[in-house]
Design a protein around this nucleic acid. Structure first.
Length: 578
RNA sequence: GGGCGUGUAGCAUAGCCUGGAUAAUGCACCGGCCUCCUAAGCCGGGGACCGCGGGUUCGAAUCCUGCCGCGCCCGCCA
C-alpha cells in the first residue's frame, strides 16, 4: 500500500531519529507486512539491535510507543516478536478509499516524466500463418502499449513484419506458378501455411524452381517493377489476413503501425557507412562486421555482429540498426522496446551495444528487450513452427470463442443474438489473452488447451464475471445518491475490499516499471476475490441502513471500474452481462 | 566447452530485483452453501525437506558460491 507507506514515512523517520538510529538506516526497514493479519506495513527491528544495544523486542516496543501518538488516526500499532506492525485504521482507510472512488483515474497518477516509447511487437511474416508464438508478442506488446499510454506516455506501435528477404523469391515464383487469379483462395485465411510450404517444397526439390527463385530475389532487390507488383500482392493479402486476426484478438494494431523490413531497405547501405565512419567496421571472412565485445564464439574468439554478408547482402542486424536510426532520429523516440522471444536476447544485446558505440543512441535513450519464454508443447519441448504441428492462432481463438458460447448456453440461456456473440467473444478471447498475460512473461510457456480455455479459477472470465455481477446490482438502482456517499467499513469483508481498491495503483505502477502485465492480473484477481467474499457476505441493496447501502454501492462501483480498467489495460473486454 | 536463463504441493503459478514472523494463489482432491443482489460463485479441509550442498546474516525461497536437471544461444537465417 504505497499511499499508506508515504503517509507514515515521515513519522518513522522522526521516531528513528529519536531512538538514536543513524540517519537513513531506519526508514529502509519499513516494508510490507508479510502476514496480512499482522498489519499492512511492518518494521523489522532486529538489525537495529546491534547499534542500539538492545533486544529487538525492546526496540519494537519503544518504537511503537513513540509512533503511537504520531500516527494516531492513521494506523494502529503493535509490537510483536521484534516487529512493529502498522495497520491502517478504518477511518484512514475509509477516507483514502473514498478518494480513490471519486478519482476518475482510480488513484493512478500520470507519469511525472512522460516518455516517447516505440514498442516493437507482433511482427508476423508475410505469406506465413500466425501461430501461437505470435500470440505472446502481440498480446504482451498490446498490453504494454495500453499501460504506458494510460500513464501518459506517447507510444508508437511498430509492427515490424517480415516482408523482405530471400524467401520472397520462391514465394513470388510460386505465386506465378499458381496463377495470380487463384491467389485469393490460396492466400486467404486458412491456407497461408499451405502456400508457404508448397513453395518451400518446390524450392527444395525442384532445381529449376530454385534457380528461378534466386533470380527473382535479385529482381526484387533491384526494384524490378513487375516483381515489386507481385511482391505487393503477397504483402497486401497477408496484411489483410493479419488485420482479421488482430480484429478477432481485439488488439490496437492497425495498418499505420506496419513498418516492415522492406521499409528500411533503402537505409541499409547508410547503416554500414555510418558504422564505417565511426571506425567500428571490420572485415572478417569477407563480411563487414562490428565486434561489440563481451561475446565469444565457440572457439573463444570475439563474436561479431554481421552487418553485411560476404555476398554483399544485408541481414536482420543491419535492419535492426536501421530501425534504431529511424526511431530515434525521425520519430524522436526516447525508449525502444522489443517484445521478442528470449532466444534472441544475445542478438539484441549485441545490436544495442553496437548502436550505443556508433552513437545511434545516447544516455537519454533506453533499450529493453522485453523478452518472453518459448511456447512449449505438452511434452515440455519447444513447439516447432516448421514441423507443421504448430497450432494456428485463428483456430485457437475460434475454438475458445466457441467454448465460451457453449458455457453461456449452459449458464445464462437468456442471452441471445448479437449480445451473446459479443459476450462469447469477450470471454473466449479474454481467456486466451489472460492465460498468456497472467504469468511471468520471461518464463517458458506451456501450451495447454485446458488451461487456456478454462473459465474457472484465476482466469479472465472470473474477473469478467465479478464485473458483470456488480453491473447487475446497478440495474436495480434508480438514484445516484450513492455517488456522493462516504465509505463505511463495518466488517472484515469491506475492509479487505477497500484495501484492494486503494492498492490498485501499486499494481499498475509495478506493471509499468517492470514491463510486467502479470502484476495487474495478480491484483485484479485479488480484488475480484475480495469482492467475491464481500458479495456473498454483505448484502448491498438489502442492507438495513441507507448509508450502508450507499457505501457498499460506492465500493461496488469502484470495484467494477477497477476491473474494467484493469482488464482494458490487458486488452480484455468486460461485458456488463454474462 | 563458453554464455544466458530456469528449477517452489499431483499439475500450473506468485513471491526473488529491495532478505524477516505459520511460503501465497488457482486447478485437481475431500466436506459444506442456491425459498435471499448472476453458484463462471462462496465457506472450510488435506497436500511443499522452496532442485541438492556450502557460505554471508540475529534471520535465506529471496543474496553469494559449487554441483545436478532442463531450456535457449554461441559468424554470414530471422
Amino acid at each position: 500500500m504505497r499511499i499508506l507507506y508515504h503517509s507514515v514515512l515521515p513519522s518513522i523517520t522522526h521516531a528513528m531519529l529519536e531512538l538514536g538510529v543513524p540517519d537513513g538506516e531506519g526508514e529502509n526497514l519499513l516494508g510490507k507486512a508479510t502476514v496480512s493479519d499482522h498489519g499492512d506495513l511492518a518494521i523489522a527491528c532486529h538489525s537495529l539491535s546491534r547499534t542500539l544495544k538492545k533486544s529487538p523486542i525492546e526496540i519494537a516496543e519503544e518504537l511503537s510507543s513513540i509512533l503511537a501518538p504520531l500516527l494516531d488516526g492513521i494506523t494502529n500499532i503493535s509490537a510483536v516478536n521484534g516487529f512493529v506492525n502498522l495497520k491502517a485504521t478504518d477511518s484512514w482507510l475509509e477516507e483514502k478509499c473514498r478518494e480513490t472512488c471519486n478519482d476518475i483515474r482510480l488513484g493512478i497518477p500520470l507519469s511525472s516524466n512522460p516518455r516517447t516509447v516505440a514498442i516493437d511487437y507482433s511482427s508476423p511474416n508475410v505469406a506465413k500463418e500466425m501461430h501461437v508464438g505470435h500470440l505472446r508478442s502481440t498480446v504482451i506488446g498490446d498490453s504494454l502499449t495500453r499501460i504506458l499510454e494510460f500513464l501518459g506516455n506517447t507510444v508508437i506501435r511498430e509492427n515490424h513484419i517480415g516482408d523482405w528477404g530471400t524467401p520472397f523469391g520462391m514465394l513470388i515464383e510460386h505465386l506465378l506458378d499458381m496463377g495470380e487469379g487463384s491467389n485469393e483462395n490460396e492466400l486467404s485465411v486458412g491456407d497461408l501455411d499451405g502456400f508457404y510450404k508448397t513453395a518451400r517444397n518446390k524450392f527444395d526439390s525442384d532445381e529449376s524452381f530454385a534457380d528461378r527463385s534466386r533470380a527473382r530475389v535479385v529482381l526484387l532487390q533491384g526494384g524490378d517493377e513487375e516483381t515489386i507488383r507481385l511482391w505487393q500482392v503477397l504483402v497486401d493479402e497477408s496484411t489483410r489476413y493479419f488485420n482479421e486476426v488482430y480484429q478477432l484478438l481485439g488488439v490496437l494494431l492497425v495498418d499505420d503501425d506496419l513498418m516492415g523490413e522492406s521499409a528500411y531497405h533503402h537505409l541499409l547501405p547508410d547503416v554500414v557507412s555510418r558504422l564505417n565512419e565511426q571506425g567500428l567496421l571490420k572485415n572478417s571472412d569477407g563480411a563487414d562486421v562490428v565486434f561489440p565485445g563481451g561475446h565469444l564464439n565457440r572457439d573463444g574468439e570475439p563474436l561479431p555482429l554481421i552487418v553485411r554478408k560476404g555476398d554483399g547482402g544485408y541481414n536482420y542486424a543491419t535492419t535492426d540498426l536501421a530501425c534504431i536510426i529511424d526511431r530515434v532520429e525521425r520519430l524522436k523516440v526516447d525508449d525502444l522496446l522489443y517484445v521478442v522471444g528470449t532466444p534472441q536476447s544475445r542478438h539484441f544485446q549485441m545490436v544495442f551495444s553496437v548502436a550505443y558505440q556508433a552513437g545511434l543512441l545516447n544516455e537519454s535513450n533506453t533499450t529493453v528487450h522485453v523478452n518472453f519464454g518459448s511456447v512449449l508443447g505438452n511434452d515440455g519441448k519447444v513447439l516447432k513452427s516448421r514441423s507443421g504441428s504448430a497450432v494456428k492462432l485463428v483456430d485457437l481463438l475460434k475454438e475458445s470463442v466457441s467454448r465460451a458460447n457453449d458455457v453461456i448456453g449452459d449458464k445464462n440461456p437468456n442471452l441471445t443474438g448479437i449480445e451473446r456473440e459479443d459476450i462469447a467473444n469477450a470471454i473466449g478471447i479474454g481467456a486466451v489473452k489472460y492465460a498468456d498475460l497472467s504469468t511471468d512473461r520471461t518464463r517458458d510457456y506451456m501450451f495447454d488447451w485446458a488451461r487456456m480455455l478454462s473459465f474457472e479459477g484465476d482466469t479472465a472470465p472470473y474477473l469478467q464475471y465479478a464485473h458483470a455481477r456488480i453491473k447487475s446490482i446497478f440495474e436495480r438502482v434508480d438514484s445516484d445518491e450513492w455517488k456522493s456517499s462516504s465509505i463505511q467499513i463495518t466488517n472484515e469483508y469491506e475492509s479487505r475490499l477497500a484495501r484492494s481498491i486503494v492498492s490498485f495503483s501499486d499494481a499498475v505502477e509495478s506493471a509499468a516499471t517492470d514491463l510486467m502485465p502479470n502484476r495487474i492480473c495478480i491484483h485484479l484477481h485479488e480484488i475480484a476475490s475480495s469482492f467475491g467474499s464481500f458479495y456473498e457476505n454483505c448484502p448491498v441493496l438489502n442492507a438495513e441502513e441507507i448509508p450502508i447501502i450507499n457505501s457498499r454501492l460506492l465500493l461496488c462501483d469502484t470495484t467494477a471500474r477497477i476491473l474494467s480498467t484493469g482488464l482494458e489495460l490487458l486488452g480484455i473486454d468486460a461485458p456488463n452481462r454474462m
